[in-house]
Design a protein around this nucleic acid. Structure first.
Length: 217
DNA sequence: AACCAGGAGAGAG
DNA sequence: CTCTCTCATGGT
């Protein structure tokens, strides 16, 4: 089995999940910050609060009272930090001319731009580049590491994936596949791969235990 | 009632 | 460069 086989295996289970769930690109940016180490359920409440106040946008974040925004995003946890992070990224994007202007940037320049913002780490950066700007990026999150490790693809649970794995994925898949791959991995992670493996409930069943060899060669 | 969630940054070694 | 700690709410 290789990466493509893993993709079709997951696709048979989940299909096209149509990620990232959001009404606008700015909402994706906001959600990407809010979901840091937080369940999407709690992020949804925060985004609904922002929408109800009519401030679920970069300028909405920038030009609203601090306490109003903090109260709205409280359910997503770490709200003091995340408020600062949201202001940082909103300010940076708006000052650059907005998302439409950034679409003209090369993928490398987008990486440089976002990685320089305090509050935007590797995963958030890649998520935004993939889902907002629709450029190739492999999102290496906790679920990916756990599942790849459990499948025998890597033995790096808790650590970031090796560069050659990420390069392989970005070479073999197009943007739409990379979008759905990350979505499916998150779904699989939510379904079964919590703290302990439960291969009876896992949709991958035996493929998980037997491991995947010669994945990258 | 401990444990963890679609992380990131600061600080220490 | 790689650990470790902190940030904080809400569901199981």
């Amino acid at each position: 089995m290789n990466l493509e086989d893993l993709y079709s295996l997951l696709f048979d289970i989940y299909g096209d999940l149509k990620w990232w769930p959001a009404e606008t690109k700015e909402e994706v940016v906001i959600g990407a910050i809010l979901t840091q180490n937080t369940t999407w359920r709690n992020v949804e409440k925060a985004i609904d609060n922002l929408k109800n106040k009519g401030i679920c946008s970069l300028k909405g974040i920038l030009f609203s009272e601090k306490d109003i925004v903090k109260e709205a995003i409280r359910s997503a946890g770490f709200y003091n930090q995340k408020y600062t992070y949201l202001k940082n990224i909103s300010d940076a994007i708006v000052r650059e001319g907005g998302i439409e202007i950034l679409k003209n940037y090369s993928t490398d320049d987008l990486h440089k731009f976002f990685s320089s913002i305090k509050g935007v780490g590797k995963e958030t950066e890649d998520s935004i580049i993939l889902y907002v700007f629709e450029r190739k990026a492999f999102v290496d999150d906790k679920y990916t590491r756990r599942i790849f490790s459990r499948l025998g693809i890597t033995n790096t649970e808790g650590k970031k994936l090796p560069d050659h794995v990420i390069e392989c994925a970005e070479r073999e898949f197009n943007v739409e596949q990379l979008k759905n791959l990350h979505a499916m991995i998150v779904y699989l992670g939510k379904d079964i791969c919590k703290s302990k493996p439960d291969c009876n409930r896992c949709p991958l069943k035996n493929d998980c235990e037997t491991g995947i060899n010669n994945l990258l060669k």
